[in-house]
């Protein structure tokens, strides 16, 4: 009895003195994420290796069937294409925004619009593009009236290239926003010092600017890639089942529009998560490198 109460008192004192241990503060967040993010994803991964009550690679192996392999390839290509093109154009836009002098209102307008375009929901974007480039679209009709060319015949929104075009609408501003800090971190003195040491603009770009910015560029491109790989709303609203993309396939499986093979649906998701996690893992490597220089 005495021992017990002494123990109690001691532990109470300990608690009082040190307050709650620190990890208790992280607990709610940890539990929240465990329940609503980690467990669902884990359940999914487990399911994809659990076929008919036993461990098996058969569901994952099914991903290699032509139709599904094609979906991965298409999604990969779409992401690669929009990341590359969006990356280059976004870089150009970031350069224009971050350097030199130009009208402030123009600068601010484009900056704030970049934030909106990279943050905006995919559904609104899809319908805005239908309103622009669809058969009845504003631009289509205007160009048809002016030149007699029906561009909706050549640019099908509900196709790979149409989707790529629409994706660029968020990829370019996203790249620009991601790259702005890196441009801001480029010191004017580096260029001036390089020039004084005999470097031309091109040499400066190749020897100094690009090597310094390279990790940020690579990291941003990987983010663009992952962003596009997981995009669902835009693709669904524009093309529905007319394109063979992994997110669309997953959507069909979830909503039960196609055969009900739980393990295979999970395998699709696992495949996608693996690709995206790989991209983001590479990104954090690049980011670590960038942080070393850009301070």
């Amino acid at each position: 009895m005495t021992l017990n109460s002494t123990l109690q008192r001691v532990s109470w004192r300990g608690l009082r003195q040190r307050g709650l241990p620190g990890w208790v503060g992280a607990l709610p967040l940890l539990m929240f994420l465990a329940l609503f993010l980690i467990l669902p994803i884990a359940a999914n991964v487990v399911t994809s290796f659990w076929v008919n009550g036993a461990f098996s690679f058969s569901a994952m192996a099914q991903l290699l069937e032509p139709q599904y392999l094609d979906a991965f390839i298409q999604t990969f290509n779409l992401s690669l294409l929009t990341a590359a093109v969006g990356g280059v154009l976004g870089l150009l836009l970031a350069w224009a925004l971050a350097t030199g002098r130009k009208p402030a209102w123009l600068q601010n307008l484009v900056l704030s619009f970049s934030a909106v375009a990279s943050q905006m929901g995919g559904v609104a974007l899809a319908f805005a593009f239908i309103a622009t480039l669809g058969v009845q679209g504003f631009a289509t009709q205007a160009i048809l009236g002016l030149t007699g060319w029906d561009l909706s015949q050549d640019i099908q929104l509900a196709s790979f290239s149409g989707l790529a075009l629409v994706y660029l609408y968020f990829q370019i501003p996203l790249m620009a926003i991601l790259m702005l800090p890196a441009f801001g971190a480029l010191k004017k003195q580096w260029q001036e010092a390089a020039n004084s040491l005999g470097a031309s603009r091109l040499r400066y770009l190749l020897d100094i600017a690009l090597p310094i910015m390279w990790p940020s560029i690579a990291g941003s491109l990987l983010l663009l890639f992952a962003n596009s790989f997981g995009a669902y709303a835009t693709a669904y609203a524009l093309a529905g089942g007319r394109v063979n993309l992994v997110p669309i396939l997953i959507g069909f499986f979830i909503s039960g529009d196609v055969m009900n093979d739980e393990s295979f649906a999970a395998a699709l998701v696992t495949g996608m998560v693996v690709v995206v996690v790989a991209a983001m893992g590479l990104r954090s490597l690049a980011e670590r490198k960038a942080n070393r220089w850009l301070r």
Partner: peptide, 19 residues
């Protein structure tokens, strides 16, 4: 806090649905 960055919404739905 960055993990949701990595997981696409569509994958989250699939997992949540399952779980």
């Amino acid at each position: 806090s960055v993990i949701p960055y990595v997981v696409p919404a569509i994958a989250l739905v699939a997992g949540a649905n399952l779980f």
